[in-house]
Design a protein around this nucleic acid. Structure first.
Length: 192
DNA sequence: TGGGCGATTCGCT
DNA sequence: GCGAATCGCCCAC
């Protein structure tokens, strides 16, 4: 079994942590799978929640690295983030998609659907499938109910522009597992 | 204290 | 492809 990821893994620049998370295994109460898509949000990034300074909502982004930041999106969905690089900054990685491997029956129940490819193919879907809510905000990633393990082998990672934001759209800070069928959306084909 | 808005999803066209 | 659903957060009044 691959080693658990602990706080030191996250206490690095977010642009290094984000691609290293692709292929890692994320479980919440034993339910989850392989991370196939993430986005990085750096504290100097106008699209990051922490950009405008500390508020009640984003407070955990300004705390220690290696904890979970959960926020509500569009009044409906929850989105799961991992806090990085705590030293005076405030950055995080948004977990956008998983390839389900464990607890698939529980995910289907929570999502009310059968299609395995659509269980975790988007940040809101993923949070619903894993049962993540505001109650998890601020919890440490190396403790229950979370379990996070490093990826077992080398793999190919693709990058592209982030999704659903209006600021700093051009930054290619979305990372994905090449060829995965469980992405929230395809990555644009790179052209020259 | 209130109005505008969003790191989304889903169903309908 | 487009737009509604839906509500907590945030800042301006």
């Amino acid at each position: 079994m691959p080693p658990r990821l602990t706080r030191s893994f996250f206490d690095r620049p977010v642009l290094k942590v984000a691609p290293d998370l692709i292929g890692a295994i994320l479980l919440v109460d034993g339910v989850g799978g392989v991370i196939v898509e993430v986005e990085a949000y750096h504290h100097t990034d106008p699209a990051a929640h922490s950009y405008g300074g500390k508020t009640r909502r984003n407070a955990v982004m300004f705390g220690p690295a290696g904890v979970v930041y959960v926020y509500r999106s569009y009044g409906i969905h929850w989105c799961l983030n991992f806090v990085c690089e705590a030293e005076g900054s405030a950055s995080a990685v948004l977990i956008r998609a998983l390839e389900p491997t464990q607890g698939i029956a529980a995910m289907r129940r929570r999502r009310g659907m059968a299609d395995e490819r659509a269980l975790c193919s988007g940040p809101g879907k993923l949070a619903e499938a894993l049962g993540v809510t505001h109650k998890h905000n601020g919890l440490a990633l190396d403790r229950k109910p979370f379990e996070l393990r490093a990826r077992a082998q080398k793999l190919e990672i693709v990058t592209g522009p982030r999704i659903g934001i209006s600021k700093a759209v051009e930054q290619p800070w979305r990372y994905g597992l090449k060829g995965s069928r469980f992405l929230s959306r395809p990555f644009p084909v790179s052209r020259r």
